[in-house]
């Protein structure tokens, strides 16, 4: 209504964003949304509804075909391939499949993220230990991934994702391979990270039980279209998607 243009920078701003894959599939259509710093947002929707595509555009694995994806003031879609790494250093990313290196110990897997960005060993150690403490795995630092349960492996991934203190943690179905109890543990870890570290978290999932229990903001995708945007706590147990 106001004629003035007071621009309040949102942490994440997505405006009229489309993603059409080379094969002609429109995975995301006319998506517009904002996310504040410190929010915990779920992205739900049926399989193939475009959740992963949205996530991939955030960490610039895919470029939007049209529209803007802005992250902390950076137009992510406009980043050149060779500067994408600078964005990635400010993000943490967690997947369904754990993507741990089997020949490295828990400690080494987490430290790997910092070695990759050229950090000194003496700086790496305290950060890795702190991150492993956040996910409750400090006593397993010498174990190898195949000696861990699924939930523990996923916690190592989370530790690796947060080890460089990202402002944003992106999770694509992090509980997809885990049973209900283990999923609950993982959600507790993520919840603590969000609350204690103030890390913004975006999590794609199709597990409605989790979403209902967590009482956070929920974005619903339907064939690539944002069909609903539930404010924190307004996604009810009875809600059908």
């Amino acid at each position: 209504m106001l004629g003035g243009s007071i621009v309040v920078m949102k942490f994440i701003q997505i405006k009229n964003c489309y993603k059409v894959y080379k094969n002609g599939v429109t995975a995301v259509a006319d998506l517009t949304l904002n996310i504040d710093k410190g929010e915990f947002v779920f992205v739900i929707g049926a399989s193939g509804s475009g959740k992963s595509t949205l996530i991939k555009m955030l960490y610039r694995e895919e470029k939007p075909t049209r529209g803007v994806v802005q992250l902390g003031g950076i137009n992510v879609g406009k980043l050149r391939n060779r500067t994408v790494y600078k964005l990635r250093r400010k993000l943490g990313i967690v997947f369904q499949d754990f993507k741990l290196l089997p020949k490295l110990t828990v400690y080494e897997n987490v430290a790997f993220a910092l070695e990759c960005i050229g950090m000194k060993n003496s700086d790496i150690r305290p950060k890795v230990l702190k991150a492993l403490e956040h996910v409750g795995l400090k006593d397993k630092i010498r174990s190898f991934p195949n000696e861990l349960s699924g939930g523990e492996q996923q916690r190592v991934c989370i530790a690796r994702a947060i080890v460089n203190d990202p402002k944003l943690l992106i999770c694509d179905e992090p509980t997809g391979n885990l049973d209900a109890n283990t999923s609950k543990e993982i959600m507790e870890v993520l919840d603590t990270i969000n609350k204690n570290l103030g890390t913004t978290i975006i999590m794609a999932t199709h597990d409605l039980d989790i979403v209902k229990r967590m009482k956070r903001r929920v974005l619903v995708l339907d064939s690539g279209v944002l069909s609903k945007d539930y404010e924190k706590g307004s996604f009810r147990t009875s809600e059908s998607v």
């Binding site: 960490y59 391939n81 060779r82 790494y85 600078k86 964005l87 990635r88 250093r89 400010k90 993000l91 990313i93 993507k99 290196l101 790997f112 993220a113 990759c116 960005i117 050229g118 690796r160 460089n164």
Partner: peptide, 16 residues
Amino acid sequence: RSEIDIMRLVGSSNTS
């Protein structure tokens, strides 16, 4: 492959 994927995710520069 998997190592490279992880390196890309955590922000290794293309050069490295």
